[in-house]
Each structure stands twice: as C-alpha cells, then as structure tokens.
Nucleic acid binder design. Structure first.
Length: 173
DNA sequence: CGTCTTTGACCAGCGC
DNA sequence: GCGCTGGTCAAAGACG
C-alpha cells in the first residue's frame, strides 16, 4: 500500500500531462491495485489512464491510455517534464509518443524502484536462485522487445535526462 | 482555505 | 435472474 501511495502521490507525471486520480480497484487478474486517472489539465479532456503494476514484475508500471487529448501539453509542464521531480512514473513516453499511440497501451518503466533498496527482487529465502534467473530472463526478454521500439529510445532519453537533471540533493537528516 | 488523495459504495455490463 | 467484475462517484481526511 505504501508503494502505491508513493506511486500515486505525484500528480504531474512524465508524459507531460497532469492527472487526477479518481479511483482505485484491485482486479482479478492482477493482485496489484489498479489506479484510475483523468486528465486534469483540461476539464473536458476525455482521456483516462489506468496504471497498474506489471504482474510479471512489480518493479514496472503499466499505464493504459483511453481516449485522446483534446488539448495540447502545457508548455511549462511539457518543459519541466524533462526535469520534473522524480517520481515512480519515470520512463513514460514523451508527449508525442502518447498522442501518436492513442488507444494503445504504453509501458511505463519504474526506474526509481530499480534502485530502491526496499525492493525485494533479489533471491530470497523462498525465492530460489533459479527462479530469480528465470524472472531475470523474462525481464531481459521484455527489455529486448521493448528496445526495438523507437519510442523506447525517446522514453529512455527522457528518463535518463530527468534522472540527471534531478540529482538527489544531499539530504541532511 | 483550497486542492488532491483515499476509499467505500454504487452502477452497469457480461457470463452462467 | 443472479452473481461477479470493472469502472465511477462522492464524502472525508490530509496536506501545502
């Protein structure tokens, strides 16, 4: 739950649009809760987005877009999109990608979690090394297929740019 | 004080 | 017709 809260706490995600969460539901096919978002940049924008953790690997987020934006990306947001505050939505496709791939699913790579020490993706006591390698193979397979997509390069560039421009400040605790 | 998130309740569609 | 499931609404609380 806390991870989901983390996921949904950021309103401006890196697809350049502003989203408002209006619901959350646990679906049958995926134990991870699915969150429902609406575009809040334009009151009449019919676009909806469903965000759910990928069942194959919960480090990844899957965002499904429904509809088409009837407005442009806010320039300020669109620009800050490259250097937006780091959120777990990192790796979203660029605004252009989102528009051209309307009515299609977009995969959002959760890059921040990959570096999270809290993530328990290492082989645990009940997670054999073989199983771990199996999962790793699946991920690599998925990555290989994704990297063939030219849009992925754009998304990756945006994600890398954001991580560079938003280097964590030295926190004094 | 205004905005946003959370979450339980409600509704509609679909399969049996 | 009934039950299940996905999607949406709306009230309450949290936060800046």
């Amino acid at each position: 739950m806390s991870k989901l809260t983390l996921m949904t706490s950021t309103l401006v995600v890196k697809d350049g649009y502003q989203w408002r969460k209006y619901g959350q539901k646990v679906t049958k096919d995926n134990p991870s809760p699915r969150a429902y978002f609406r575009c809040s940049m334009a009151p009449r924008c019919p676009v909806k987005k469903k965000v759910q953790r990928w069942i194959e690997d919960k480090r990844y987020l899957v965002a499904t877009y429904d509809g088409e934006h009837n407005h442009d990306v806010d320039c300020s947001i669109g620009q800050s999109f490259a250097s937006a505050k780091s959120s777990s939505m990192a790796g979203f496709p660029s605004p252009e990608t989102s528009n051209t791939s309307r009515f299609q699913s977009n995969i959002a790579l959760d890059l921040t979690l990959s570096g999270s020490s809290q993530e328990k993706k290492r082989p645990s006591s009940h997670d054999s090394v073989e199983e771990y390698h199996n999962k790793k193979m699946k991920i690599e397979e998925y990555v290989a297929s994704v990297t063939k997509d030219p849009n992925f390069t754009i998304a990756l560039a945006a994600a890398v740019a954001s991580s560079i421009t938003d280097l964590p400040k030295p926190t004094i605790l």
